[in-house]
Amino acid sequence: MSTRDSESGRASGSIGKPKPGQDEGAATFGAFVRKPGARRVAVDVSSANKSGDVIESIEALPDDAVEVGFITDAYGLKGWVKVVPHANGKQGGDALLSAKRWWLVKGRDRKSARCLQSKVHADTIVARLGGCEDRDAAMSLKGHSVHIARSDFPKLDSEDEFYWVDLIGLDVENEAGVALGRVADLIDNGAHSILRIEYPDADKDGKAVTGERLIPFVGVYVKTVDRAAKRIVVDWDADY
């Protein structure tokens, strides 16, 4: 069900199926959510190749660190690494191409590295890290997740654009004030983003379970997003 538009890095388009009574031709928010695609340009953040660059072991990550992908392989012979950006809402592409500092995690191993250069390569991102000089060094980083400080994410173009990571955890209610749950994740179906909302429920035996709602993240349904209040208001009945 999930696909990724790596060309634009955005979710847009019309919804696949309207809810009961909804006009199929109704407009959507368009490019409402920036998802983890990547701009197809190389970004060189190194003014010079500093000989003192090293990959350092650290105790902890910054408080605003966000996991954006993972290193799958070495790329070439000169120490470049290949990174697969996450496509499930934990932002990738644009942040990987713009951030100057990466944090790498594998189990209890935590490292800090300066990103000297990064660019898009097919469906992945390849990067040169300070202190990673050859293929063997790059291979030693295979399997590490890549984290970027949220403050290093590129600025969005519009107030109606949001990074997925900023929506996860927001409470969702409808226009009548009925609580529908909390955003657990987002899904990309190729045409637009979908909010995956979890809420407390009970099964037929009265046992507590976690319910799930899927709401297309388009303007037909999503009326307001108030990040300060940690709330999303939608046109959606609780029994849909």
Rank of each mutant, 00 (worst) to 15 (best):
D63L: 11
P18K: 06
S151W: 00
V178Q: 11
V105Y: 10
D160I: 11
G93W: 08
I168N: 07
V209D: 07
P20M: 06
V54E: 05
D239H: 10
D73W: 08
S158H: 12
A42W: 12
G169W: 01
N88T: 00
S12I: 10
Q117D: 14
S145A: 00
G25C: 04
V233H: 11
A26T: 12
A149K: 02
E59I: 04
W103A: 00
R10M: 15
P216M: 09
F70E: 01
F29G: 14
T72E: 07
K100Y: 04
F29V: 08
D53R: 00
V54K: 03
V105C: 10
T3W: 11
W103P: 10
C132W: 03
A137Q: 03
P85Q: 02
D63R: 13
V126W: 08
S14Q: 13
G143Q: 07
S118V: 02
I197S: 04
G52Y: 07
D235Y: 08
D44T: 15
R108N: 15
V225H: 06
D109Y: 05
D203F: 03
Y75F: 14
D73A: 11
V33S: 09
E24G: 04
A202I: 13
A65W: 06
A138R: 01
V220G: 13
T210G: 01
L170E: 05
V234G: 02
A87H: 02
D63S: 15
A42L: 15
V220A: 13
A228L: 09
R231Q: 13
V84S: 01
A95V: 04
L180K: 04
M1K: 13
Y221T: 06
A27I: 12
L214T: 10
V43C: 13
A202S: 14
D53L: 08
L61Q: 03
A27P: 00
P36G: 05
K155D: 13
Q22K: 11
S8W: 12
K100V: 07
A87V: 11
V43A: 14
